[in-house]
């Protein structure tokens, strides 16, 4: 979206630079090539962001699953202790501890080493922000184009 914004700026400058009418084909060609290329790059970035956010979201799901398995292991531990089965209780206690450690590791990993796009952690929130920016850029481009067209016709 940043590249789209830069591209929009370049094209806006070109279209408002007061070139002669004969130069219009060159200006329009430049604008079209720049925009389509920038658009493709942006779409690719957004797709990467989508899958990066999906990978990051998996960490939360994994932590929740580990918590569920930990709760089950605690149930087993309590049941074994109630039954006086020391061996089973010990095994369950070790599993509980390991699940707890693993859950913390997963969460820490998600905090410290998330999948990043352009240096930013890929999240659905970032996608929404970029989408809002893209919509704003598109509306600005349309407004500029309409003003230019109205000016030329007028």
């Amino acid at each position: 979206m940043l590249t789209v914004g830069v591209g929009a700026s370049v094209v806006a400058v070109l279209l408002t630079s007061g070139n002669t009418a004969g130069a219009l084909p060159a200006v329009v060609s430049f604008a079209v090539v720049g925009f389509v290329t920038l658009l493709q790059l942006s779409v690719h970035l957004v797709i990467m962001l989508f899958y990066g956010a999906k990978a990051n979201a998996a960490a939360g799901e994994h932590a929740a699953q580990l918590l569920c398995r930990q709760a089950e292991a605690r149930q087993a531990l309590a049941a074994a202790e109630a039954a006086g089965d020391g061996h089973a209780a010990a095994a369950a206690a070790a599993t509980v501890a390991m699940l707890d450690t693993a859950r913390h590791l997963v969460l820490a990993d998600a905090d410290l080493e998330p999948v990043r796009i352009l240096g930013l952690p890929a999240t659905s929130g970032l996608m929404k922000t970029l989408a809002a920016g893209a919509a704003s850029a598109a509306s600005a481009i349309i407004a500029v184009a309409r003003n230019l067209y109205a000016g030329r016709v007028g």
Binding site: T20, G22, A23
Partner: peptide, 11 residues
């Protein structure tokens, strides 16, 4: 004219 130069420059 100049437009041709400008077109060549842009491309």
């Amino acid at each position: 004219g100049d437009a041709g130069v400008l077109g060549a420059l842009y491309e």
